[in-house]
Design a protein around this nucleic acid. Structure first.
Lengths: 328, 328
DNA sequence: TTGAAAGCGATACCAG
DNA sequence: CTGGTATCGCTTTCAA
């Protein structure tokens, strides 16, 4: 149906090779020929078939993006940044949402592998070993996680936690709970690690609450448990979980932040709009997406060599409604 | 690098054709052969190159999704539904965010056209004529808009507006404002049309406020203007705009809903979590995405013929914090 | 500067 | 039931 290179060649009265050259390397072709080809191409509305091109060049100009859940507002932000940066280099984006199912990731990557030049895996849930199986075959950059030997971009959670705990400590809090996210989430482990280090630095007591789904419902599910514990503040795995806590606390008329302070992570749009506004650790989502694409393109250039690159993006505590514990 | 059909053929000691058959139509091949091929394939980790396959079958098993802004939480919901349904039919998704730039849409569609079997255009901003240029060439299903001759899925905004206005009228409101979204948005025009009809039915006065970007900032930008008008309720183009209004009203200590009731559209996650919770017209986002994919697949089946299909999904008013005007 | 021919990976068709 | 061959749309030698 659509015009092919042959159609253009016929109309311009030249060979397919010349069309190809005229369009790709204009300087290698006589100006007159180039002009004829260009006119023919635009008359026919010719656009090269990138899939066919990829077959021979080995470069598809597509990048695969795999993420656990587009419904978590954190991811659309990252994807948007990826899109923007990818487009700048004439790359198109293949998107796959795995629905938080670790088992879906590997088959998905395999199935798409030949249609893309490689992948940006956002917060992948699969095991290290499973992912490592792709090393050497498929260019992969990992976001929000570190898996040797892939390049990666992660947020500086430890610093974020340090800021959060410093803030809570300054307000007078001494006991804090952490509501953990998915066990399969590297970010969760990273945040917990950072939190443990921070609470120990400040000599604060840390109580850990169950692993929950990284959703509003997940937060709501452990809110009562948290409320029943002797803490005056709680840090949630992410903002959605924090909002679930907030919601349930409100329903039970547990005053936030007076009775208990809630701190989230990510700084999604929602965080600033709820009442009381959520104190949260902001992550440089755009930077993560953008840097991911950059690392990816670097990776394609020098097909191998060089040791893996890890970029760490800054975090920033956004203080909104938190206060000191009521008894102060 | 990765295994091709030839590698499998060699390892299994058969021809490429047989490998192809063994994998695609197992019943046309001797069980023994099939087994050998299957083992060879799995040993080599062989996955067919879908791009190459598409070249000859004319079917890529990819679907292009184009939308104006992934940062609007409405779209990720739709995309997620599309993904889920697409995966069910073994389709992969190409995603493109145009950043609300109408000029980007057409070139984007053109560039991707050969890599996909067609497109799902979510709330496209381009002109009718520009889109129509694809008719006959590129299978297209339009979501949240109607453009002859493409099949489309739209929400029943008129009914949603009727519900919203009925509700406000019952509460005693008689003057209502509408904060309009982008001029290029068909949904905006559709909602406005439905609203006009509803207000006239109920004999209510309608005041229209500027066209704003469909974002929180857009809403905040006209909040003062709305507050200065003689209305007791305001309906926003969408929830983000409504939240912008809410935010600004709070900042100015204009009581919601006592002094002014705010109604949104879409029912994004945020709507239920803010305080006061936002009354809004829920749209069947999942259904829109799912139905879009279904129409798309139908479209591919009978390459032409049949008159265009328009599906309309129901809307449902979700009443949360609205009340009657203070003077009652 | 240009064209012919080979080939990327897979499938379809036709003999055998 | 199987193998050979042509082909999809494009790029890349290689000669001319």
């Amino acid at each position: 149906m659509a015009a092919t290179i042959k159609d253009v060649a016929r109309l311009a009265g030249v060979s397919a090779s010349s069309v190809c050259r005229a369009l790709a390397k204009p300087e290698q072709v006589r100006p007159e020929t180039r002009e004829r080809v260009e006119r023919a191409a635009s008359d026919l509305g010719y656009y090269p078939n990138r899939a066919a091109r990829g077959l021979i060049t080995g470069r598809t100009a597509n990048i695969g993006v795999v993420l656990p859940d587009l419904a978590n507002p954190f991811f659309p932000s990252v994807v948007k940044a990826i899109q923007t940066q990818a487009r700048r280099f004439d790359y198109a984006v293949f998107l796959s949402d795995t629905d938080e199912d670790p088992a879906l990731e590997v088959p998905l990557i395999r199935a798409l592998a030949k249609q893309v030049d490689g992948f940006l895996l956002c917060s992948p849930r699969a095991g290290d070993e499973e992912l490592r199986a792709f090393a050497g075959h498929t260019p992969i950059v990992v976001l929000n996680r570190r898996v040797t030997p892939f390049p990666s971009v992660t947020a500086d959670s430890a610093d974020g936690m340090r800021q959060a705990i410093g803030h809570l400590h300054a307000l007078g809090h001494r006991r804090v709970a952490y509501v953990a996210g998915p066990r399969t989430s590297w970010s969760n482990r990273d945040r917990l690690r950072g939190l443990r280090s921070a609470t120990s630095t400040y000599d604060m007591e840390l109580i850990e609450a169950g692993n929950v789904a990284p959703t509003v419902d997940g937060g709501a599910a452990v809110a009562d448990l948290v409320a029943a514990s002797p803490v005056t503040a709680v840090i949630a795995y992410n903002d959605l979980v924090a909002l679930g806590l907030l919601n349930r606390f409100r329903a039970r008329e547990i005053a936030v932040p007076e009775r208990i302070s809630v701190v989230g992570f990510d700084d999604i749009l929602l965080a600033g709009l709820v009442t009381p506004a959520l104190t949260t650790v902001a992550i440089a989502k755009e930077q993560i997406g953008r840097t991911g694409v950059d690392l990816f393109l670097d990776l394609l250039k020098d097909d191998e060599g060089r040791k893996p690159v890890h970029k760490r993006t800054p975090t920033q505590l956004i203080v909104r409604a938190s206060t000191g514990p009521a008894h102060l």
